[in-house]
Amino acid sequence: MYKGGRIIAGLLLFACLALMPFLINIGKAAAKPSPQVNTPFIQQLTTQTCVESAAFMKTEHMQLLNQWRDAALRDGKTVYVNSQGQSFPISLENSCLKCHSNPQQFCNTCHTYAAVKPYCWDCHNQGGTRQ
């Protein structure tokens, strides 16, 4: 093979680089995330449901948040009426975080596990100063 040594060395180097994420993480399986919903506020609720069903929130919360963002910020629509007819103020800080007062745990557990880095907290206050 013409310049065979170089080609093989190059291929090996490429394989190493391409497999780097796997090689680095060998034997470091992260534990399955378990977001906590037992905040004091939630415990006091009689019916412990979110603005929509838990199954919906698990798969669609990002779309819902985007919808909320555009509705509140761009259209001035600040009230969300869910599929059961209940209304909630559209606000990350004043609705979501009122119950989920533990965003560090609740949000970050799964996001860290899935290596997702939402930019919500670059601007929105994650709490700390709030009750």
Partner: peptide, 10 residues
Amino acid sequence: SAEASEVLTD
């Protein structure tokens, strides 16, 4: 979006 939901002004 979630089915049957809507957004309103306050």
